[in-house]
């Protein structure tokens, strides 16, 4: 479903701030894979996601989605294949527009925008039904501005928007990191449900080891722009935080020095 070949991305090349964010990264996701991507600050997780989404153009390498080479395709055209949820709850929705207007925008992802009405009555019924599955009472607030919603509600809505049209690949960029623990858990539960029901191929970045272990069927760890661990199947199911830390130490020869990942 997703094939990433020898990706290289250098920020501020040739300056004193030069940073190799992706160093020859290759990765293949099969259809239906739910991959959690973990790593410390600056490991290159978000850069990898942004390169796949087309926010950054890569310096070298190739990105194929469902066999189609998208390496040089601009972000807004790539969006036809991708569903995205961001770390910042403000990022995924238009705050000054209504809930239904936001949903209508994503209901047309990958289609040409025309002079037809931006939202139809038939759609409203669909949105109502989908929103009621979130169990947040949003189905009765269709025309409320999204800016009135809490961070958790906005992330749940963004998740719904990202999967309204089934994406070939769902990209979740630390989408629970800005939420309080209880809300984060709810959103993660919802994520599991949506991914499972839609059989979505998913790449979820997280800095929380427990979340990375408890979700998905495959775990990838990045460090210094490289993939250093790739754990699947039985091995992934038996993983614990301790064993993961131990394996990280063996592979990288250093301690996993990231309080955020350990404490949360």
């Amino acid at each position: 479903m997703l094939e990433v070949k020898n990706l290289k991305k250098i920020f501020n090349a040739g300056t004193i701030n030069e940073k190799v964010a992706l160093d020859d990264v290759s990765l293949t996701l099969s259809e239906g894979d739910f991959v959690t991507l973990i790593g410390g600050n600056g490991a290159g997780k978000s850069t990898l996601l942004n390169c796949i989404a087309g926010v950054h153009m890569v310096d070298e390498g190739q990105i194929l989605i469902d066999g189609k080479d998208v390496t040089r395709i601009p972000e807004h055209k790539r969006a036809a294949y991708l569903g995205r949820v961001f770390q910042d709850p403000m990022m995924g929705t238009a705050a000054n527009m209504g809930i239904e207007e936001n949903l209508a925008l994503s209901y047309r992802r990958g289609k040409n925008r025309t002079l037809k009405w931006g939202i139809s009555n038939k759609e409203r019924d669909v949105y109502k039904e989908l929103l009621s599955t979130l169990d947040l009472g949003l189905e009765n607030r269709l025309s409320d501005k999204v800016g009135l919603l809490s961070g958790g509600q906005r992330q749940a809505l963004t998740l719904l928007m990202a999967t309204l049209i089934k994406p070939k690949l769902l990209l979740l960029d630390e989408h629970t990191a800005a939420l309080d623990p209880k809300t984060a858990e709810k959103v993660l539960k919802l994520t599991d449900k949506i991914v499972e029901e839609g059989k979505l191929t998913t790449l979820m970045v997280t800095h929380n080891m427990r979340d990375a272990i408890n979700h998905g069927n495959r775990l990838i760890m990045m460090s210094n722009g490289k993939i250093i661990l790739d754990i699947t199947g039985e091995e992934k199911r038996n993983l614990t935080v301790e064993s993961l830390l131990e394996r990280f130490g063996k592979v990288s020869g250093e301690e996993f020095a990231n309080d955020r990942a350990l404490l949360s």
């Binding site: 969006a79 403000m90 047309r108």
Partner: peptide
Amino acid sequence: TEIGCAIRATGNNPNMVRAQ
């Protein structure tokens, strides 16, 4: 219209609009 909504959203949150 669809285009009109897209313009309003662009002024609001261009990142989100590109993602759509």
